[in-house]
């Protein structure tokens, strides 16, 4: 007895050492970042004008800045714009990515070439994408030119200078850029589907569509949620393409949260307002992430149970 106990104790302390040797650098990293968040808190509760004093002399104003941000119409609009941008581009990425994954997950000849090309946009630097599309999208430019040739009529879409079109354009660019991401995730999900279930269902006479809807989709749910959530959160933060192409214009059509935040802090140097805004954005993001986590955990549990049921059933 004693020896087993000692071995266990030794093991446990060994694990503790191992655990802390991993966690210590991690916590040090967080500690290193702590001042950033403290500074941010300081700025959001003080009113600091770059033009009047140094930052450590700013006046304490409590929640005034937050109140100002919350009543700022431009901020409301930017939230709405960001939500539209993120939802639409996420939906687009998902539909195209999932579609491609469905077409691609059974290998065929030349599969590799398509694959490499399909992930290319993700490998391209966003600023490059912005400048390239600037060359492609002018009214008499190549994109309208090719569309006109294909459709046989004169296409004169104003991609970048019309407020609604500009929003659609940045959404399309985001879809172009990040479809590979959902594509790969969905491909991973699809290739992990158990083949036996397929076989069994087919023997029972189920149609392709039924197999897909009643077997594949439930099993894919967690992956779908994952792809959608990650993409949505990344899309909320999109900045380089929108900024390089449109700087929030035309009018204020593309003034999303990151663009407005950038202007407030780096153009207007309203550091306090920017900090308060950042905190509000951060809180919203954290709420989204937390609910996303709940969904994901729930889905994962369901999936595990499903597989367990399958294993015990066999």
């Amino acid at each position: 007895m004693a020896t087993t106990f000692e071995i266990r104790k030794k093991q446990r302390s060994g694990i503790a050492i191992f655990k802390w040797s991993l966690l210590t650098p991690f916590f040090l990293l967080l500690l290193f970042l702590l001042p950033v968040f403290l500074l941010q808190i300081y700025f959001s509760f003080h009113s600091w004008s770059v033009y009047l004093s140094t930052w450590w002399e700013a006046d304490f104003v409590g929640f005034d800045t937050f109140a100002e941000v919350l009543s700022d119409e431009r901020f409301h609009w930017s939230i709405l714009r960001s939500l539209i941008f993120a939802s639409a581009s996420t939906a687009g990425c998902f539909v195209v990515g999932f579609g491609l994954a469905l077409l691609m997950y059974r290998p065929f000849k030349g599969h590799g070439v398509y694959y490499v090309f399909f992930i290319l946009p993700m490998l391209t630097v966003p600023v490059v994408i912005a400048y390239t599309f600037e060359m492609l999208l002018y009214q008499k430019g190549p994109v309208n030119g090719i569309l006109s040739a294909l459709l046989g009529t004169d296409i004169n879409v104003i991609w970048l200078a019309h407020p609604t079109m500009a929003v659609i354009t940045v959404i399309l660019l985001e879809i172009w850029n990040w479809t590979p991401f959902t594509f790969i995730i969905m491909l991973a999900g699809l290739s992990a589907l158990p083949e036996e279930l397929n076989e069994a269902a087919r023997i029972l006479g189920a149609s392709r569509w039924r197999i897909f809807r009643e077997i594949h989709l439930p099993l894919l749910r967690p992956v779908i949620f994952l792809a959608v959530i990650l993409r949505f959160l990344e899309a909320i933060g999109e900045f380089p393409k929108t900024w390089a192409l449109l700087q929030g214009g035309p009018g204020s059509a593309t003034e999303t949260i990151p663009v407005y935040l950038f202007m407030t802090t780096w153009d207007y140097f309203q550091i306090s307002k920017g900090a308060a805004m950042s905190y509000l954005v951060m809180i919203v993001m954290i709420l989204i992430v937390l609910s996303a986590i709940r969904i994901l955990m729930h889905e994962k549990k369901n999936l595990d149970e499903m597989y367990q049921a399958k294993e015990t059933g066999e």
């Binding site: 929030g248 214009g249 009018g251 204020s252 059509a253 003034e255 153009d267 207007y268 309203q270």
Partner: peptide
């Protein structure tokens, strides 16, 4: 004046919004 960039950008934004028909 001090605050040149913000003065100018706010005006520019509104003018641009009117030009494209947003306001």
């Amino acid at each position: 004046l001090t605050g040149h960039r913000e003065f100018q950008d706010v005006l520019g934004k509104h003018i641009s919004e009117a030009y494209v028909g947003q306001i």
